[in-house]
Design a binder for these strands. Structure first.
Lengths: 338, 338
DNA sequence: CTGAAAGCGCTTACAG
DNA sequence: CTGAAAGCGCTTACAG
């Protein structure tokens, strides 16, 4: 591998001048610039980025922490983030925690060891007290998830409102016993959705039963499992509709319900979340909440770049709420036109 | 940020000794080692990785090139790769080319600029002649995809056999007019599957019609589009079964076929590829080829680490073929027990 | 077992 | 517009 020194020698100039050409520094005569470019070409020279990183004290790399890449919500998010990052000449390091607190911590260390310039938290496994100290080592942006007392910019949608709209949709269809499948207990994201769910029920003067809420539902299998449990509830106390935290869970419920000969939505109306591809592939298709995944990803990175630019004059917004919408399909309403 | 110099000062020792402690070098007395550790702790010291990278001339980072992360095949692959990489203390850089030749090239540059130690090609957009020169800059492993004349280790499954087994399954069910939806034309992966498809047909003495093969089918929408085209073919010349290159395509065909009131598999038998989650969520469920995605991802990284270890005594295999299996479901056969 | 010194490949004041 | 020199934070022969 050729180094800057060899280029300088071949061009008959100093390393300083070569460096200036590399970095498009203005004060270089056209003639010498050309000599340098020729020498670089001849040697197939390319700057060593480890050296540049050390000198410039920046890596042009951003870490993005997610819980699992195989979840279409996260892969969609990462897809868009990668696009925005590369537009800015940045790399993305994939931090797939698989919901492990330890892995998350090891990825946070990337910021401390200067392996990345900033870190985007699209998932948080640890308590905020554990994560907070790392904010001292570089910019951190929260994406979708958050924690009370958090002191970093947050890009997300209004989960409470989404829970409200989804539940209200079921109420308007006449349902009065509605179950809520939330994600992690005590996580704001889940609690917000539940709060919206509760608000809608209260608006209709319905006395909420705590046993209508279930936690820890994430995957297709969780959905299937939940349905089997649900089936054991006595018929006349059993909810007639369910609001889930993900299309995967909804699809699992649907799939298992069909196996047991249930008629969806007649016997059980189901609302998903995310408007993933599977939402339109299953039969009946899923009513769901569409999140603007690309927009969330893009905004999170744009906020990160604002922080990185340290043009602190235009400080990024502390919290940004993106729009969402309810998409009504046959898992809640019969005979929708396709 | 504390540096090694500050740690040395606080510990009253040389930077050399501190470095030895960092790198677990044996010849350090327990007493001094403890002094160093104390100083490091007190200062919250952590080595600057840019400096380590420059000195050691390695980055402990691997690039993985894929065409799109939202494809469950790739996200599954990356998920496992990330796991194996982090087991070895390596980071993964996500190179999502979105099928752009230019983006692929810019990611190959990572190897040349020493931003990664090695690169895994799980997708190839450029011709091999374009990619080949980069092998001079560090180890490269091909994963699933390949090109004729390629001179790097390859981890993949036997696509030709998979195409054969899938087609034979349809033949055994009595189908004689079978369509083949391939991916990119002139790409070995697609051509291999097609070769297997042809071999099975020939074995049954069937005269193959070239118009039964279609190219460029990747997504759900491609599947839907294909079905609409397919529908326009005259009834008695129309294939009665189709072998597709992905479950997404198969799901698209299925979805559109149902919209048009077709009975699957009676009117059209469908075979997918990959055994993705959607394969069991759609109705009828998809007959498909299960690829050992995790195994492919793991092996590709293990081969990469062998190359990186430069224990050239145990040279990695030039080509490794992993097993697959056909999973029969209701998109080809009625009344399978669930 | 320990340390002074050189050097990895760059960039950047500073001086001219 | 150009260059000599210092320095980013480490590691590693080399000498003791």
């Amino acid at each position: 591998m050729a180094t800057i020194k060899e280029v300088a020698q071949l061009a008959g100039l100093s390393r300083t001048t070569v460096s200036r050409v590399i970095n498009n520094h203005p004060y270089v005569s056209d003639e010498k610039r050309q000599q340098v470019l020729d020498a670089m070409k001849q040697l197939g020279y390319v700057p060593n980025s480890s050296a540049q990183r050390l000198r410039r004290n920046k890596t042009e790399t951003i870490a993005v922490v997610i819980s699992r890449i195989v979840n279409p919500f996260f892969s969609g998010l990462v897809d868009e983030m990668e696009r925005v990052a590369s537009e800015h000449g940045y790399q993305l390091i994939l931090c797939n925690t698989r919901q492990s607190k330890e892995k998350e911590l090891s990825y946070l260390e990337l910021l401390r060891t200067k392996q990345v310039d900033g870190i985007i938290m699209a998932s948080m496994q640890n308590e905020w007290e554990v994560i907070e100290p790392y904010t001292a080592y570089g910019p951190m942006v929260a994406c979708n998830e958050y924690r009370p007392g958090m002191s970093i910019p947050l890009v997300r949608l209004n989960q409470e409102e989404a829970g409200y709209v989804a539940t209200k949709h079921l109420l308007e269809l006449g349902h009065r016993k509605i179950a809520c499948l939330a994600g992690n207990k005590a996580i704001p994201l889940s609690e917000d959705r539940k709060a919206g769910y509760l608000r809608a029920l209260q608006e209709y003067g319905i006395k909420v039963k705590e046993e209508w809420t279930y936690y820890h539902a994430f995957s297709i299998d969780d959905g299937k499992r939940w349905f089997r449990l649900f089936q054991t509830i006595e018929t006349n106390t059993r909810p007639t509709a369910v609001f889930t935290g993900s299309d995967e869970v909804a699809a699992g419920i649907l799939s298992e319900a069909k196996v047991h000969g249930w008629n969806i939505p007649k016997d059980l109306a189901i609302v998903g979340f995310d408007n993933q591809q599977i939402a339109t592939l299953v039969t009946p298709r899923l009513t769901t909440i569409e999140q603007p995944i690309s927009l969330i990803g893009r905004r999170a990175l744009e906020v990160m770049f604002m922080l990185l630019d340290e043009q602190i004059n235009d400080l990024p917004p502390f919290e940004e709420r993106l729009p969402f919408r309810l998409i009504v399909r046959e898992s809640t309403v019969l005979a929708i036109n396709m």
